[in-house]
Design a protein around this nucleic acid. Structure first.
Lengths: 124, 124
DNA sequence: GTCAGTGTACGATACCTGTCGAATATGCAA
DNA sequence: TTGCATATTCGACAGGTATCGTACACTGAC
């Protein structure tokens, strides 16, 4: 107990009340991040670890997206052993931006014929 | 060269019903474009020409933003003489993405990140 | 201790887009 | 026709960011 405080355990979470609309829209304007949110909405809270999502990006990129979503007040993360479990901050975010998250969760995943990746994704 | 139809009367407008969420979020994730929308919301329809907006960008950049908004189904434009008048497609866009435009129009312009220092000293 | 699993940090790269100045096209009125 | 005002288009540039592979940190179990 005495000794160094392990601030590694306290993840920096942004309160949805402090999120500017700019940040919220930027966070939601990425299809991978919206996929994370929709996946999370279909599961009980804090049951999904970051690595269990089926995402079309590498592990490093996925980690980046989780950080962006956390910074935008869209999800809460807690560490459980080696895993990092996620919870969608639905009520809080909805109180800040009513209806916005609902539009994302109701989005029809309609994969167009021409994927609009920003960068390459040759082998998948 | 044969004169190609440039500013034809048939401006390419995207029906809000055909706008993917991706495009809507990308269009709204720019502060200049949101400023255009908020300005437009405070005026009667088809009374604002593109050049009458007080925007912090050049004329060329403004023209680009108007085109993006039109392609995202957010505004309708008609030519009146040398001017191009604008109308916010509020009802149509709201039918497609309920609540989304309302969040933008209700945005209180928060200029810049609030410094934590109290050097303005509003209360001491 | 070592090992395996999970997630982040780092460095590099490619693409997108917001930005500009200058040129061009259009409409209207002298 | 000329001139002026309005708006788009063109070519170029810079910054941001999504992406990757690799290396590192941490936890729990052996």
């Amino acid at each position: 107990m005495a000794g160094q405080a392990r601030r590694a355990r306290t993840l920096r979470h942004t309160d949805p009340k402090d999120v500017p609309l700019q940040d919220a829209l930027e966070a939601l304007a990425d299809p991978v991040r919206r996929l994370i949110l929709r996946t999370l909405a279909g599961e009980p809270e804090f049951t999904r670890a970051c690595g269990t999502f089926d995402l079309p990006v590498s592990k490093a990129t996925a980690s980046h997206h989780f950080a962006v979503l956390r910074a935008a007040g869209l999800l809460e993360q807690v560490d459980q052993g080696p895993r990092r479990l996620n919870r969608l901050r639905r009520a809080e975010f909805d109180a800040r931006f009513p209806g916005l998250l609902g539009l994302v969760l109701a989005e029809d995943e309609q994969p167009g014929p021409a994927p609009r990746d920003a960068h390459t994704a040759p082998s998948r």
